[in-house]
Nucleic acid binder design. Sequence first.
DNA 1: GGGGATTAATTCACTATTCAACTTTTAACA
DNA 2: TGTTAAAAGTTGAATAGTGAATTAATCCCC
Lengths: 158, 158
Amino acid sequence: MTTDSDTPWLTDQEQRAWRTHLDVSRLLMHQLERDLQPFGLTNNDYEILVNLSEAEDHRLRMSDLAASTLQSKSRLSHQITRMENAGLVRRESCESDRRGLYAVLTEEGWDTMRRVAPHHVASVRKHFIDLFSPDDLQALRASLTPVAEHLRVQRGTI
Amino acid sequence: MTTDSDTPWLTDQEQRAWRTHLDVSRLLMHQLERDLQPFGLTNNDYEILVNLSEAEDHRLRMSDLAASTLQSKSRLSHQITRMENAGLVRRESCESDRRGLYAVLTEEGWDTMRRVAPHHVASVRKHFIDLFSPDDLQALRASLTPVAEHLRVQRGTI
DNA sequence: GGGGATTAATTCACTATTCAACTTTTAACA
DNA sequence: TGTTAAAAGTTGAATAGTGAATTAATCCCC
């Protein structure tokens, strides 16, 4: 950040857009978390399950999993430990790089995923996707994509 | 949530919109947090300061502050304790309702707010607002507003 | 005006996250 | 080759967040 003190304040429109975005982010995460609770999962748990489910052999290197879930290695490590204790994943060592570990979906993890996913999708639809017209959704994606890219670049250049 | 197992899966378009939204939310919060770090504030701290700054007499009832920042009372209580220790706010008892407390901005809190706000605005512009065309921003707000309203209703009916 | 429900806020015990320090293995390169 | 630097991952202590239980004041209404 340059410490520009001549940055213009947000206009009313901008202010409202910004706050609405903030509110939606927060309220949505809350709601999804609540909808997952009956299944004994958190949003974080679920995201790990999704990533592993979509990965080849249901396994990913810890680093890759951390990167794709945007978490720190430390946080992921703790997270995987918890999920390991819950029987959803296990760690397996990596032959090609003896520093490395895979997080692997267990049978139970995979079953859980298949059981919970429909409910989660319903939740995402009900509280987000289905509240937009197809055009609005398309516009949303289009205008958000460059923002995501910008932020990814920023993130890289720590 | 109804446990509809016949909810259609997300289309490719929907999937992408959804994941982009998720990524932007998370990356953005991260980036803002990072930009606030040099000033010794977290996003939460900053949001409390904003709310108090905008309130009459720089004071708000704990409950109102919790509601407007979408936090639980418990969390807010801890948060205010930390900010009190940091000298940014203080608690004051409420005459009209002896159960109640006000969180009040201290001089130092107000100074901090005035000092940090321009940098925060610059950060919000750089990483969010200025990445949209005015029309896109307007469209974003328009399509997000009903979502926020929907989620607020859900939240109320706990 | 007195008893039961509600509301404001905090506290306690527990879980989650962060940040820095650490171990082990691999890569670089002189 | 040896030696240093970088990367993968974990650990541990400190901080933050959650949810249920608790305290104290107010509301209600008969």
